[in-house]
């Protein structure tokens, strides 16, 4: 079955290049992760009863196992999560856009089949608007924008996010506060 593919050599190589600083492969890696996460989500979708919820980290953990195998070093794991956060962001934004586009009341069945993933309840924020605001924030202050992506879409803790961004926990905390205050204003109705 397709979603039980063994760890992919291609992904491992891409990931190695990325970890060694080759940022050209980022988009490709994110794309692979995006596909993998959708598969994972489909997998859950097809077999779980309603009421079972799933944290982003669980989904990403599965993708990690599948794509890179089980013996991955802690540092690599963190990096992987950083990439996955971007993929998760895409998934959620896709969903939000599709939902906004749909004029129908209630969710569109086709959406479920196509994306295979839905937020457990609609997130408190407008994900599509948050996405745009984050894009804008990234031009003003890239690192805080990244931090929000890691924490909100990737489900990372502040410490994990600080590791990924290679800053102190205190700096990450401060970035978080500023970015959050900024985004609150941006997303205000």
């Amino acid at each position: 079955m397709e979603d039980l593919s063994p760890p992919s050599d291609e992904t491992t190589q891409l990931f190695t290049r990325w970890r060694e600083g080759d940022r050209e492969v980022t988009e490709e890696l994110v794309e692979q992760l995006y596909q993998e996460l959708r598969k994972q989500a489909r997998f859950f979708l097809l077999r779980e009863r309603q009421g079972h919820t799933l944290q982003p980290t669980e989904l990403v953990n599965e993708a990690l196992l599948r794509l890179l195998g089980s013996d991955v070093q802690a540092a690599d794991r963190t990096h992987f999560f950083a990439l996955a956060a971007r993929a998760m962001r895409r998934i959620l934004v896709d969903h939000a856009r599709r939902k906004n586009a749909s004029k129908r009341l209630g969710p569109d069945e086709l959406t479920v089949i196509e994306t295979g993933i839905l937020p457990v309840s609609e997130p408190a924020v407008d994900v599509a608007a948050l996405n745009d605001a984050l894009d804008r924030l990234a031009t003003v202050a890239p690192r805080p924008a990244r931090l929000v992506e890691l924490r909100y879409f990737g489900g990372l803790t502040n410490r994990e996010a600080a590791d990924v961004l290679d800053v102190s926990v205190a700096t990450a905390e401060r970035d978080w506060k500023t970015a959050r205050t900024w985004l609150r204003r941006e997303l205000a109705p």
Partner: peptide
């Protein structure tokens, strides 16, 4: 209000009428 504090979690069934 927990703004952005909680990452969205996922479920497998949409809310339907």
């Amino acid at each position: 209000d927990g703004f952005l504090e909680t990452p969205p979690s996922f479920a497998f069934a949409p809310v339907e009428t």
